[in-house]
Design a protein around this nucleic acid. Sequence first.
DNA 1: GAGTGGTCTAGACCACGGG
DNA 2: CCGTGGTCTAGACCACTCT
Lengths: 239, 239
Amino acid sequence: MQQLDSHQYLGVRDDIAARIAAGEFKPGERLPSERQLQAGGGVARGTVREALFQLEAEGVIYRKDRSGWYVSPPPVVYDPTRWEGFMSYVEAQGRRPETETLSKVEIVCDGMLAQIFSRPVGAPMYWIRRRRLIDGRAVLIESIIVDAARAPGLIEHDLNGSLTSVLKTVYGVGVARNKVDMRPCALTRDEAEALRVKSGLPGLSLVRTCYDAQGHVVEFDREYWRHDALTVSVDIRVR
Amino acid sequence: MQQLDSHQYLGVRDDIAARIAAGEFKPGERLPSERQLQAGGGVARGTVREALFQLEAEGVIYRKDRSGWYVSPPPVVYDPTRWEGFMSYVEAQGRRPETETLSKVEIVCDGMLAQIFSRPVGAPMYWIRRRRLIDGRAVLIESIIVDAARAPGLIEHDLNGSLTSVLKTVYGVGVARNKVDMRPCALTRDEAEALRVKSGLPGLSLVRTCYDAQGHVVEFDREYWRHDALTVSVDIRVR
DNA sequence: GAGTGGTCTAGACCACGGG
DNA sequence: CCGTGGTCTAGACCACTCT
C-alpha cells in the first residue's frame, strides 16, 4: 500500500499539484492536455491520467468531458440545520448561484411515496427536477416531490428560486422539522449525465425530508452533489 | 459522457453487479481474481479493472491490498446530533465494533490548537490516534486532541471504549455543543496506510469540535472514514 | 478538421499476501 | 513459493468539443 520511489504517478501528481499551488494554474483554468503533460516527464499517458484521477479524487481538479482538466474552485459550506436555501447561502459566500428547472410534472403517488407522505397510493404529487450551478459549474441535481394537495398549482410558478419560500409565502406551508441523510456515492448514469460528468465520479447523496408543525411531510428531496463542491457543517446544542 | 453500446467496462460492471445481487458473492466474500474475471469475457485486464473501480466508487465492493476484491457489507448510520459513541451505535445496528488505540501522547499546544481551544501556545494537550473497525474491517481513523488541564492523566486510562464517557464519568466533563464538519475527500498517504487501503480512495472527512456548557472546547476530533462505511443522518427541529 | 479526453489492447515487471 | 493486485508501456481507435 505504500509509495516508495516507484509509483511515479504520485510524482507526476505532486508536480502538477505544486504547479497549481504555485499559482501557475488558477481556479477555473484549464490544465495543459494529457499529451502535453506527458511530454514533459517521459511517461506514458496512462500514468499521467492516473495522477489526474488522484487529484480529481482529492477535489483539486475536475474535468469537462473531452474538453480538458480544470482547477477546482473552493467548496461552499452547507449547513443542513439552517433553513435558508441554496440561492442565499451560496450568495452569502460570495459565489454566483443559478438554478435551472429541468422538468416539473404532476405524478401519482406510488407505494414508496405513499409511505413517505402518509398519503394514499394514487394521490397527486408534483415532481420537480432541478440543476443548480455555482459560478457557472453544475454542482448538484435534485429531484423534489411535493404533495399537490398542499400546494395546488405549484408547478405553474417560477421554480428557479427558493422553493421553500414559494411554499411559505404562496401557500402558507412552513417547515418545522428537517431530516437529512447524507452518504458518499458514485454518480450513476442519469445524475452524471445531468451534471455532465463521467459516470462513476464520486459524489454526495443527500436526502431531505421536510415536515410541517403537524408532522406531515411537506417536501421530499434527493440531491446529488459533485463531491468537490461542498463542505457540510452542522452545529448542535444539547437540549 | 454517455455509455452507448461501446463502454464495455460498464457491461462488465453490470455482469459483476448482477452476480453479486444474485447472491453468488455475499457481503465480505472475495471475488474471483481479475485475471479470472477477464478470462470469462474476452476483455483486457485494464477493462476489468475499470469495471471494478466503478463498483468500488459505488461502494459495492472494496479491495484489500494485493489480496483481492471483496463485497462490501452495508453501511452503518451515523447521527452527529446524538451523543452516543461509535461503540454503542454500531452495536445497536447489529454490527461488531472494535477500537484500537494507535498512539496516545502528551503534546504542547501549537498555534492552530491554541486558537481552537483558546489556550496559550505551549499548554499541554493529549493527542490520541485510534482506528475503529466494524465486523473486523477498518472503517475509520481518528485523531483526537483533548486539553490535558481538563482531564489530567487521561492517557493512563483504557481508551478503547467511549472517550466521551471516560471524560464524563472520570472527570465530570460534559459536552453541551457539538460542531461537525464533513466533506468528501481522498484518503492520503497516512490515512490510507492506517486503513490499509490504496492512497487516493475516496473517503469522508469528519471534523468534530465538542464544547462544554461554558463554551470551552473539550475535544477536537478529526475522523477519516472509508466512503462506503457510513450514512450520515441528521434530524432537526425548529424551535 | 484538429485536438481533446475516453476506451481498449496485450503485453511487462514489481511488491506484497497467504484466498 | 505462487498468485494477487499495483503500476507501467506503447501503441490504437473512437466520440466528442471547439481550447
